[in-house]
């Protein structure tokens, strides 16, 4: 019996070790080192000095007194803008996906499967190419302005390198992320509840806000969180569609690592991003738990 136990234990060890090794050594350890770096003094040529140096965070959050680093509100501004753009992206993806999810859910099975295929497909196609499409559309001599010109309107509109362009790009690439969870909760809706609500004299408007919307809320919450997190830390969309005009936290981090070569400061910015994401996740879990408690 003990040999059987021992053999089982050995099997378990064998199953656990590959992933533990990779994730422990190349995920956990790098994050710990990054956290350490964020509190070290930047060296002269892109390296670090092993001294405790809280001003990496102070430059952003306001306690750098000017002896070593200046507090510059521009960083807070960029962080706030990232939050704002990520929140608007969540709202826009929801606005685009929510009604479409209802329509798809009502289709006959074949049509429904085809729609799901069409919505999943972009997820499999290259992200950079989907963003490139919007560069083609929005740039000064792009699709929109060429079309306007062809229609006889000779006032080109400046779209690329604006917050609007960044929002369009992020909404476009994150649509499948929002659609899937929202659709899953719409599909599960019990039609009898709607009938009951109509029988009891509720208007369509009332039925929607009192019955349907609350029941799809878990899907909306899940979609919101998986759109919000990658939007907040994005740097590809701002770099292609926002240019130097619309910087986000991700763009700042990239600059510190590849251009300014101030790695500790870049690490500090990344830490702030990570903390923000963690807070969002914790809030999400708490809200879910409260929801469950409310139901039971």
């Amino acid at each position: 019996m003990s040999t059987l136990e021992g053999r089982k234990r050995l099997q378990l060890l064998g199953l656990l070790s590959p992933a533990t090794f990779v994730i422990g050594l190349f995920f956990i350890a790098p994050l710990v080192i990054m956290a350490t770096y964020s509190m070290l003094e930047p060296g002269l040529y892109g390296g670090v000095e092993w001294n405790f140096y809280p001003d990496n965070f102070g430059r952003v959050l306001g306690w750098a007194d000017g002896t070593l680093e200046e507090f510059d509100p521009v960083y807070l501004e960029i962080i706030l803008r990232s939050f704002k753009l990520a929140a608007i992206t969540v709202f826009l993806t929801l606005l685009v996906c929510y009604p479409a999810a209802f329509w798809v859910a009502r289709q006959p099975e074949k049509m429904r499967n085809f729609c799901m295929f069409l919505i999943t497909l972009p997820f499999f196609t290259s992200l950079i190419i989907r963003l490139y499409a919007w560069v083609l559309i929005l740039r000064p001599s792009g699709f929109i302005n060429t079309t306007l010109l062809a229609l006889g309107i000779n006032t080109p509109i400046n779209l690329i390198y604006t917050e609007t362009a960044v929002l369009i790009g992020m909404t476009y690439i994150f649509i499948p992320f929002m659609f899937m969870p929202v659709y899953a909760s719409v599909e599960k809706l019990d039609r009898r509840l709607l009938e009951a609500s109509a029988d009891l004299g509720a208007s369509r408007w009332q039925s929607f806000w009192k019955i349907i919307f609350p029941m799809t809320l878990p899907g909306v919450a899940a979609g919101s969180i998986i759109v919000f997190i990658p939007s907040l830390g994005n740097f590809i969309v701002p770099s292609l569609l926002g240019g130097a005009q619309v910087l986000m936290i991700g763009s700042l981090v990239e600059q510190q690592f590849l251009a300014a070569r101030n790695w500790p400061f870049g690490a500090a910015l990344a830490m702030l991003l990570m903390v923000a994401v963690l807070i969002c996740l914790i809030l999400n879990v708490l809200a879910q738990n409260r929801n469950k408690a409310g139901v039971s």
């Binding site: 190349f26 995920f27 350890a29 790098p30 994050l31 080192i33 990054m34 770096y37 997190i229 990658p230 907040l232 830390g233 994005n234 740097f235 991700g250 981090v253 990239e254 690592f257 790695w263 870049g266 690490a267 990344a270 991003l273 990570m274 994401v277």
Partner: peptide, 13 residues
């Protein structure tokens, strides 16, 4: 984890 955080953590590592 946001991509960019993992990317720079690996770079430093």
């Amino acid at each position: 984890m946001p991509d960019i955080v993992l990317g720079i953590a690996l770079l430093i590592f």
